[in-house]
Design a protein around this nucleic acid. Structure first.
Lengths: 344, 344
DNA sequence: TCCTGGCACTCGTATGTTCCGAGTGCCAAG
DNA sequence: CTTGGCACTCGGAACATACGAGTGCCAGGA
């Protein structure tokens, strides 16, 4: 705030990078001497100290107490992620393992379950995967089943393999022919369409039926529209909470709000919702809107069965995380899940 | 082991009960003086000390170190639960709240989700609810939908409102009439039957179709049987993990294995599987087969939509828990879920 | 026979003190 | 601009001490 934002020269950036890398590795504040020993910067500790002082003044690093080493601030990590790090690609064997693990999935639930576990294992952090959302997907088929004279079950199947069902209590008995007719008309118009567009395409259907059947048709359609619109139904799957125990020393204080956040689907959805549609999003510490996650970082990305993102997935870990590795894993997993979805 | 198992007189039992109650309240070892102050036992601290010495010799309580108070052992809690405590019934307002909260549920998923959250809140511990298992429930309806010439979707709806779906890749194109015929025959025989009995009732179906259709019929049935048999599909929902932070002082060591256990559906299922079909089961500390839960207690019970248990639910907490209260909450919730399921 | 008050003893925790060394900032020389 | 030197700071480990909760035992009393 107070200081002039000076242009950081290359060596200062190198120092910052080294600090981040060392701190992520050791989890301990890193001093000037240790730095020059582990990275051949070609300068003396004293020089590094000067650079560190400058970096600190600009708010990239910070001293827990006077006679300690430095640790990166949120701002420091931000700079690191933006300019000093490259996403670390997965090795060939890793990619093969991912592929193989995901290929074994039998249905959508299984794909999501496997993905989230895989991501948690790869990153050794908490993984979050959102189910392919309804609003982005298209209708594969809509089925109506008479369960009782005035009870109809409605099943909605999307191109991502997701299935939603609803019970419909009709105002009166429903004839099988009417039902078959309705089913055929609905599918003729809706199949292949994006979910949000379906209501508009079906609006005038009741008018095409005899007056006596119109209330029933209207009721069924109302339920269908409801199911289509219900974005609340967006579900999320979670794994790797046990990794939270490796979080830090000041344990209970950090972990509790995180666990609480993880239980609230709403919070997680909002978290993933902030992910940019294209490219990877990294939110570091305070950059997270939710307060309980102020000492964590979130790496998230969209994935989809085609060129388009239908849902998001990501990882939650301490701000002190291996960003290049985590980002590499997240990106790779997202890519493969997309492929799996496209194939099925 | 070494000592003779003596018959404990009433006062010793009263002392044990008091120790358990105090320790659960304060989380600190309880001494003789504090005991007589808080419970009017009508005797002096010295007398209590003698009783404590006897209780310790028999293994019901234990001293963390020489100059400290006593804490109950697993064996002590066991005796407390078996003979010294009564399940604490929920108060009328609490019952009303439970009822009201669960009544708002719209479908099976929602019932389970609400139940598990409710249980976690009531007990302030980790709650676990198993979905009504397929094997105990009956068929409400089985639907077949042609999605493509050789692709059929199979939907299985049970009386508990659970829905399973499977894709079936048929050996050849499937005629709509054949499909309708098959659907009708399957439902005529299977509706209302218990899931495990269904395969036996449908075995001879292929023979009733023309030779050309038999492979298709067989394939569909095979998938159906698979879905029926797949008990692995038993799902579990979890809530209240944030309550783990209130576990104890020696935090990370206790919490990590617990978190790991909670992530393994298999372990949780086995845990609940050990629950007796009737009545409540309490497993204390070492009584739990899974090692990671050796310092926790599990209170579980079956619930069901009628007089019969279709699934289990329970609570996982520290051995030092309020057993009467927890048992009361678990029992009450199980009862109301049963009612909700019976109604729907 | 059982209960009780008294008393010496134990030992974990809290508190205080000292000491060490990693790490810093500054400065003068190269 | 870099570097070696140097005085300084301060958190944490190591050690010492004091406190007190709690115990076990015993002798006297109901």
């Amino acid at each position: 705030m107070a200081g002039e934002v000076r242009q950081l020269d290359d060596r200062k950036l190198a120092v910052l990078r080294a600090i981040v890398q060392d701190y992520v590795g050791t989890e301990e504040p890193v001093g000037s001497k240790a730095l020059v020993e582990r990275h051949n910067l070609g300068v003396s500790p004293a020089t590094v100290r000067n650079d560190m002082a400058a970096l600190e003044e600009d708010g990239y690093i910070h001293q827990p107490h006077t006679s300690a080493g430095r640790i990166p601030t949120d701002k420091g990590y931000r700079l690191f992620v933006d300019r000093l790090a490259e996403v670390k690609p997965m090795s060939a064997p890793e990619r093969r393992a991912i592929r193989h693990f995901l290929d074994g999935a039998v249905d959508l639930d299984d794909v999501v379950a496997r993905t989230v576990r895989l991501l948690a294992q790869l990153t050794r952090q908490v993984a979050v995967v959102q189910y392919p959302s309804l609003s982005r997907s298209t209708v594969r088929h809509i089925e109506l089943v008479a369960l009782a004279p005035a009870k109809v079950m409605l099943v909605l199947i999307t191109n991502t393999g997701r299935v939603e069902q609803r019970m419909v209590d009709c105002p009166g008995a429903v004839g099988e022919t009417v039902l078959a007719d309705l089913r055929a008309r609905i599918n003729a118009r809706a199949a292949g369409q994006r979910l949000p567009e379906v209501p508009g395409l079906l609006e005038d259907l009741p008018a095409q039926f005899e007056a006596g059947d119109r209330p029933t048709v209207a009721t069924v359609l109302a339920t269908l529209f409801e199911a289509l619109a219900e974005q609340n139904e967006e579900r999320i799957m979670l794994a790797g909470t046990a990794n939270l125990t490796r979080f830090g020393h000041d344990f209970p204080l950090t972990i509790q709000p995180v666990l609480e956040a993880l239980e609230e689907q709403v919070i997680l959805l909002r978290l993933l919702g902030e992910t940019a549609d294209a490219g990877m999003t990294v939110r570091i510490g305070r950059e997270n809107a939710y307060e309980g996650l102020n000492s964590t970082s979130v790496v998230s990305v969209g994935y989809g069965s085609g060129d388009e993102s239908v849902a998001k997935l990501g990882v939650i870990g301490p701000t002190r995380m291996d960003y290049p590795g985590t980002m590499g894993a997240v990106r790779a997993v997202a890519r493969y899940v997309g492929q799996i979805l496209a194939e099925s």
